[in-house]
């Protein structure tokens, strides 16, 4: 059975996320990001940031929710029972600080089959309230037995 490729190029509604201080602290604690700029306002400001700044991988908090509808879309048609997160890339732009409002737009970039597996490649582009790009994510899911 071949993979369906009709969803290549499809876009889903953008998701908006407002960044809060305690969420950054909680995430930084869970990943061991102990630089004070992720916890303390004075340290962040003396480090040249507008406010407490998120660790780079905080991007999953505001961008992953935008991926939900794409993953579940029947037009994409992934078998979730045999799906694995195969690879991930993030390219970072402007730092994300407390108070930022981040909008993430998801799209499907590529669907192909290789060695009996389906590869589903999605992109999320996240921008802040000033329309500056903060992160671009490339999410590759692999479905076995397509």
């Amino acid at each position: 059975m071949a993979v369906k490729t009709e969803a290549v190029g499809k876009e889903w509604p953008a998701n908006t996320y407002e960044v809060g201080l305690e969420k950054i602290r909680e995430f930084a604690g869970a990943v061991g990001a102990d630089n004070p700029v992720h916890h303390d306002r004075a340290a962040a400001k003396s480090g040249g940031f507008r406010d407490v700044v998120a660790p780079p991988m905080f991007c999953v908090v505001y961008s992953a929710p935008a991926m939900g509808p794409a993953i579940l879309d029947p037009e994409v048609g992934m078998n979730l029972a045999t799906m694995l997160h195969g690879s991930q890339e993030f390219v970072w732009g402007e730092p994300v600080c407390v108070g930022d409002v981040i909008t993430t737009a998801p799209s499907c970039k590529e669907i192909y089959e290789k060695d009996g597996k389906g590869f589903y490649v999605f992109e999320t582009v996240s921008t802040n309230q000033d329309a500056a790009e903060v992160v671009r994510g490339t999410w590759t899911n692999i479905v076995r037995g397509v």
Binding site: A33, S87, E89, P95, T138
Partner: peptide, 14 residues
């Protein structure tokens, strides 16, 4: 030095 601005890109395979 842990500067979050320094990491510009990270690509991984799980």
């Amino acid at each position: 030095g842990g500067d979050p601005r320094a990491l510009k890109r990270l690509s991984v395979q799980f």
